[in-house]
């Protein structure tokens, strides 16, 4: 009996050594990705328009397309991605422990996350803000009318903090009901437990389009009570990988600014514009500087499309979410999307 204990303890110790030494491996993320042949991408468990799996298990959405673009840039194949659905609490651990290579999961870029969680944000893929959704029948026109109201919230987000900040600033005495899962919080809100539901405005549009018994019975209030710049994040210990992901995002923006789309990218290769030539790898060695193929941006644009195409395909006016470009238009069209020059 005692001997069996001993063997058990030894086995446990051995297992711990093996598993820890596996986790401690970090270093060149790109090398590891090239070796295994795909990118492991952390996404949302299900948020229409951003990351959602269909009945065949095929993932689509704006966040998903970012991972696909990176895969196209690295491998020339947008489908060299495996997805890990993560909930709000798992997501950072999944990234920092090495389980995923990119966290592309409608995650807000904040100082605390950037500075103290072992991760870095590579850019902004969607400028969002926290809003409120209420039933039309409640005849509420502004979030400031929510005095004493019960508000449904999903935990594991900056949402609770923003809600409290907004209520404190406006003396609203809001009563939150906090749920762990998105599903239960939706059930409670549409069941009438809360007067309002709060999350990022894009999330509200997504939930209204997908889960409301009748989407027209609910309105999203005009106030945005916070800034929610959503973007992909990578581990802090690998600056090369960070740079690569960052520049794939810029390439998608640059393509939209220069009018390069998935449809015309082949013709654009013969463009006389040196900027376009450099971006598409016709001249220069931009891809090599990032440690990948020179056709990196060409592949990403050809297979996934430029940022504008990704936006319109997943969340734009022709989708159930019906989101306007707003802040997410290019800077030339009055938005905030500004790609750093590829040169």
């Amino acid at each position: 009996m005692k001997f069996r204990h001993l063997v058990g303890a030894a086995a446990a110790a051995l297992f711990a050594v093996v598993s820890v030494s596996g986790a401690a491996q970090a270093g060149a993320t790109l090398d590891a990705i090239k070796k295994k042949g795909f990118i492991q991408c952390g996404v949302n468990t299900g948020l229409a328009g951003f990351s959602v799996a269909d009945s065949q298990g095929v993932w689509t959405g704006l966040d998903v397309d970012i991972c696909k673009a990176v895969a196209a840039a690295v491998f020339g194949d947008a489908n060299a991605v495996k997805y890990t659905p993560t909930n709000a609490q798992q997501r950072f651990t999944a990234l920092t422990s090495g389980e995923v290579d990119i966290l592309s999961r409608n995650t807000t870029w904040t100082l605390t996350r950037d500075a103290s969680l072992g991760m870095m944000f590579t850019g902004v893929t969607y400028y969002d803000g926290q809003g409120f959704m209420v039933p039309k029948s409640a005849k509420i026109k502004s979030a400031k009318e929510l005095k004493g109201a019960t508000v449904c919230v999903q935990t594991g987000t900056t949402t609770e903090l923003n809600l409290a900040d907004f209520a404190r600033a406006n003396k609203l005495n809001i009563k939150p009901v906090v749920f762990e899962s998105l599903e239960e919080s939706k059930v409670a809100f549409f069941g009438g437990r809360c007067k309002a539901y709060t999350t990022d405005a894009s999330g509200l549009a997504s939930i209204r389009a997908k889960d409301a018994p009748n989407p027209d019975d609910y309105i999203i209030l005009p106030e945005l009570i916070s800034k929610e710049p959503l973007g992909p994040a990578v581990r802090r210990d690998d600056v090369e990988w960070f740079t690569l992901v960052k520049w794939v995002l810029y390439a998608l923006g640059e393509a939209e600014e220069s009018g390069i789309t998935s449809a015309n990218v082949n013709e654009m290769k013969s463009s006389a514009d040196p900027n376009i030539q450099r971006l598409l790898g016709v001249s220069g060695d931009m891809g090599q500087k990032l440690g990948i193929d020179n056709a990196w941006a060409f592949n990403a644009i050809k297979q996934v499309g430029n940022y504008g195409e990704i936006f319109e395909r997943n969340v734009g006016q022709k989708t159930p979410l019906r989101l306007a470009r707003g802040l997410n238009a290019t800077w030339k069209n009055g938005g905030l999307m500004y790609a750093m020059p590829v040169r």
């Binding site: 449904c152 935990t155 594991g156 749920f179 899962s181 409670a188």
Partner: peptide
């Protein structure tokens, strides 16, 4: 799971913040 603010719920929020 059903929105009652018990110890685990509060700890979850704290953990995330």
């Amino acid at each position: 799971a059903i929105g009652y603010p018990d110890l685990v719920s509060v700890a979850n929020t704290t953990l995330n913040q």
